[in-house]
């Protein structure tokens, strides 16, 4: 069971409080009617499914209820960081070279 840091509550809590919400930084097209079927399928279904550093979303379901983003290594399952929804992707180089705030 993972330990996850909620960037809104600023607390590290067990996975049972959270719901996974899929890959992060997949924005719904601003004007869906203008995108092609391929682009819509890409938005709906295609996922990078990374083995390694993965940008993903979680919801603090049994806490503040907020959706937030996380960077996690899908091999070790260790979180590198978590950050608020809407914030840009954190810089990976910085992350890998500094200790995690999510987890411990």
């Amino acid at each position: 069971m993972l330990l996850i840091h909620c960037p809104y509550c600023n607390e590290t809590l067990p996975e049972l409080e959270y719901a996974y919400a899929g890959e992060a930084h997949i924005a719904r097209p601003a004007n869906p009617s203008e995108v092609s079927d391929e682009e819509w399928a890409e938005f709906l279904f295609m996922r990078s499914n990374v083995k390694g550093i993965h940008y993903e979303r979680w919801r603090h379901l049994h806490g503040c209820g907020r959706f937030f983003n996380a960077v996690r290594d899908t091999v070790s399952d260790k979180f590198l960081t978590t950050y608020e929804a809407g914030a840009p992707r954190p810089d990976l180089d910085t992350l890998v070279n500094t200790p995690a705030e999510g987890g411990k």
């Binding site: 069971m1 993972l2 996975e15 049972l16 719901a19 996974y20 890959e23 499914n49 990374v50 083995k51 993965h54 993903e56 996690r72 899908t74 091999v75 070790s76 399952d77």
Partner: peptide
């Protein structure tokens, strides 16, 4: 488990 993982570990709950 609910999240993408290649760790082949799996949780206790």
């Amino acid at each position: 488990d609910q999240y993408v993982s290649y760790g082949q570990r799996g949780g206790l709950p």
